[in-house]
Design a binder for these strands. Structure first.
Lengths: 220, 220
DNA sequence: GTCCAAGTGGACGATTGCTTCCACTTATGA
DNA sequence: TCATAAGTGGAAGCAATCGTCCACTTGGAC
């Protein structure tokens, strides 16, 4: 509180405006977690205790709001890649990256949807960031392959496969994360050049009641 | 055409009503494939060349329409389970099941969403079907484990994990199916008791441009 | 051919969410 | 303390979709 008024003045933004912006972001994360990223803008505004106009002033589009709300998570992803490259053992670096990103998706409800939504867009300004991420990840893959731990036919695009599949899982089943951990364990195992059955995290509590194989064919 | 009028009369449904019902189902599959299962009901009606009232008469809720549209696929799933139990080699039966269901999800756009949507609902009438499916699948798993091909810590609930993850992938990336095939290959491999790196289907054409790791942190 | 119940189409009111606009409030610098 | 421009709230105008209602049409039994 004490610091904000000066810091604020410096970038020409009024203190209350900056405070409201934060409240909106907090509210957005909460609402997105609860109702998905398609939740009404007005709901976010109400939760933040501000009017809709205030929300629109700070975030002119839903997309901007979503990006703002999950910018922190996106940064954590980016950091995980840097960290992964710094790990001495290439396989452990690779594993670290996959596990970190999946853990983020598992823990912050709403983030997976934002993640997928952000997908098709390889727009101008971010293109450079993406290119760098792509290059870095490819480096990580090559190193892990050279060390003999990562199977040689793993392709960098497989990361997208893993992440999208994982997003789908945690979105469909926002449970305690058991399913997510199990999927990640299975996949990491099959990425090894020398696959060995290691112990898995416990299975989900889900019964197979889930399996909608049963046709309601006598369609009543 | 020739047959329908008699068959129809038999169950007390007018021939034109039955014909319209079919047209609606065809239209629904097309529209759901194109715009997702949340597409407006009116769009389906227009595509079918009928009024909205007709649509609502046959399918009072969107849910009923979705179930109607994909009943065939659901039946194919059920049949795959029966077939799988009939395959002499238990592992091949298991593999057959997973691959068949995933292939269905991959090929019929809109079906995966319907599949996931059908999920939480373990309603009364279908409960018995599901229970049977669950029991049969558990049998399949036990047999494959007894034969030594399926890892012993595979849990029947892992099927739900696979299918939901796969749904998420094909929903996010309705491409040519390369990603789907690759995921399935990875997973089946990690389900083996004696994992061995077999050749994978080719990777997706996706570049990693997809990876939205790059934060747009200088949020402009 | 005639009749009538089953079936149909499209208009309509209700609901929900988006976005803009403008009169009011308030932080800030002098 | 005051002036002022930045910031704010909520109402209002739109647009999309839902699901129902009712007057009209048509299949099929006789």
């Amino acid at each position: 509180m004490a610091e904000s008024s000066r810091i604020t003045a410096r970038d020409g933004v009024r203190a209350d405006a900056r405070r409201n912006r934060e409240r909106v972001l907090v509210a957005a994360r909460a609402v997105f977690a609860e109702h998905g990223i398609d939740a009404p803008m007005a709901t976010v505004a109400r939760r933040a205790g501000v009017g809709v106009a205030t929300l629109y002033r700070h975030f002119p589009t839903r997309d901007a709001l979503v990006r703002g709300a999950f910018a922190q998570q996106m940064e954590t992803c980016a950091r995980a890649l840097t960290e992964a490259l710094a790990v001495p053992d290439p396989w452990q670096g690779f594993q670290h990256l996959v596990e970190t990103v999946c853990a983020l998706q598992r823990e912050e409800r709403g983030f997976p949807a934002a993640f997928v939504a952000a997908f098709p867009e390889s727009t101008s300004e971010h293109a450079q960031y993406r290119q760098r991420a792509e290059r870095d990840f490819t480096t990580l893959v090559r190193r892990a392959q050279a060390s003999g731990a990562l199977r040689s036919d793993f392709h960098p695009s497989d990361l997208a496969v893993v992440l999208l599949a994982h997003c789908g899982l945690v979105t469909a089943l926002p449970d305690d994360g058991a399913a997510s951990r199990r999927l990640v364990a299975y996949l990491l195992q099959s990425f090894r050049a020398d696959p060995v059955n290691k112990p898995l995290p416990p299975p989900t509590a889900l019964t197979l009641r889930s399996f909608p194989i049963a046709t309601d064919s006598p369609q009543g």
